[in-house]
Simulated assay, not measured.
Amino acid sequence: MKLLRFLLFPFAIIYDLVTTFRNFLFDTNIFKQNSFTIPVIVVGNLSVGGTGKTPQIEYLIRLLKNKFQIAVLSRGYKRKTKGFLKVSNSHSATEVGDEPLQFTKKFPDIFVAVDEQRVSGIQKILAQSNADIVLLDDAFQHRKVKGSLNILLTKFDDLFVDDFLIPTGNLRESRRGAQRANAIIITKCPENLSVEQQNVIKNKLKKYQKPIFFTTISYAKTLKGFTEILLADLSNFEVLLVTGIANPSSLIRFLKDRKINFQHLNFPDHHHFSTKDIELIKSKFEDLKGLNKIILTTEKDFVRLNNDLKNLNYLEIETTFLGNQQRVFDNLLINHINQYSENN
């Protein structure tokens, strides 16, 4: 696979030229960017998938929902519908995408919508709601919207500065795109990441002259779903782990560190589970030998699987800032919102 990616390097150069020229057209206002009278906070990345955008959006919702009217707009990746839809509990993941449906079920008071045309989507949100703020999910490359604040995520063990453009690497655009960010968050860090290790990464990124934050993934102490199980008791169960996310390595490492016995069925990111897939999962589950056995999945996968499987549980995750960085980040965000709202 590495050899193939190396051989495809000339195509990465062509891709770089195309995306760089596109960004030039937006940067010089030849292509129009649309601003709005309320803050539009963009959460995205330079890489393809797996950087933790969903828990970061949820962090922003928790931070802001008691002070502001929040709306979240996503394209609804891999949904089988088109156009603008306000997401409700009655929708399926097939109709609106798994992440928007997860936001709706978790935060029922938040206006969640999907639209592949982000400008039109924000306009419809403003017409249909009293939103004070729009959170734009996975839209760092969607240059038609000029975000008031751009938050760039990059994974601890796969920093964008160490990567190359697709197809040789996983970057959607050149590393130069990081210049558009107002803050860079290093995601999925080890909980015990030292200040010295943080400084090494900061030195790698210092040329971008952006505020840099470090976060980790925190897991809930109780599994939800078919039945509530204490995480501390999970080692007493035979576990079939089913994932359809871009990078399940953090969850796998978490389970292994806790000596939890599991078998893993790994599907592609945002996978639409077919009848054949469901039958395979049921068969693998029946093959487990323990008296106590469950199917464990991610919260994102749960919204796609819970209507088809029993014995299905999921483990909630949250973004947690390391050290005292949460206070600094929260202040940066709140100050931006207040200043932007005041100016507009």
Rank of each mutant, 00 (worst) to 15 (best):
L234E: 00
R327V: 13
N306A: 06
A71W: 12
K310G: 13
D301P: 09
I70N: 12
F21Y: 05
N344A: 06
I125E: 11
N170E: 12
G177V: 12
L241W: 03
F26A: 09
E299A: 14
A12F: 00
F237R: 00
F6N: 14
I186D: 11
R304P: 06
P108Q: 12
S250W: 06
N344G: 04
I294S: 03
L135F: 10
F160P: 03
H272Y: 10
G121D: 04
K105V: 00
F107K: 02
I30A: 08
I295S: 03
K206P: 06
N292M: 05
E238G: 13
L4Q: 07
E228R: 13
K204E: 06
N199S: 14
K2S: 10
G323T: 05
T215H: 04
Y77A: 10
S218M: 07
F164D: 06
F24Y: 10
V48D: 08
I61H: 12
T275D: 15
G225A: 00
R304G: 11
I38M: 09
K310H: 13
S341L: 15
E95Q: 15
G44R: 07
V303G: 08
N34C: 07
K146T: 11
F214V: 05
D269I: 09
Y314R: 06
L315M: 02
G147Y: 04
Q198L: 00
D16N: 15
K32L: 08
T187M: 02
N324G: 03
H271M: 11
L152S: 09
E173P: 11
G244P: 08
H91E: 02
T37V: 03
A178I: 08
V112S: 02
F213G: 08
P55R: 06
L193E: 08
K224F: 08
H91F: 01
G44E: 11
D330L: 02
Y208W: 14
L205E: 06
F9C: 05
V48I: 12
S47N: 14
D115M: 01
Q209P: 02
N34K: 14
S218R: 12
I61V: 15
K202G: 07
I217H: 08
R62K: 15
K65S: 10
Y59D: 09
V242P: 03
N335L: 10
F9N: 04
L73N: 07
T154E: 12
I229A: 01
Y340P: 13
R176I: 04
K188T: 02
D301V: 06
K105I: 01
V114S: 02
N192E: 15
K105F: 01
Q325T: 05
Q123K: 15
A12E: 02
K124D: 06
E191P: 10
G244H: 07
R175G: 02
T227S: 14
D233W: 00
K310V: 12
I61G: 12
S218F: 09
A139I: 00
D277M: 11
I295C: 01
L193K: 05
F36N: 03
F140H: 10
Q56V: 12
Y340T: 14
L73V: 07
L312R: 07
S174R: 07
N199H: 14
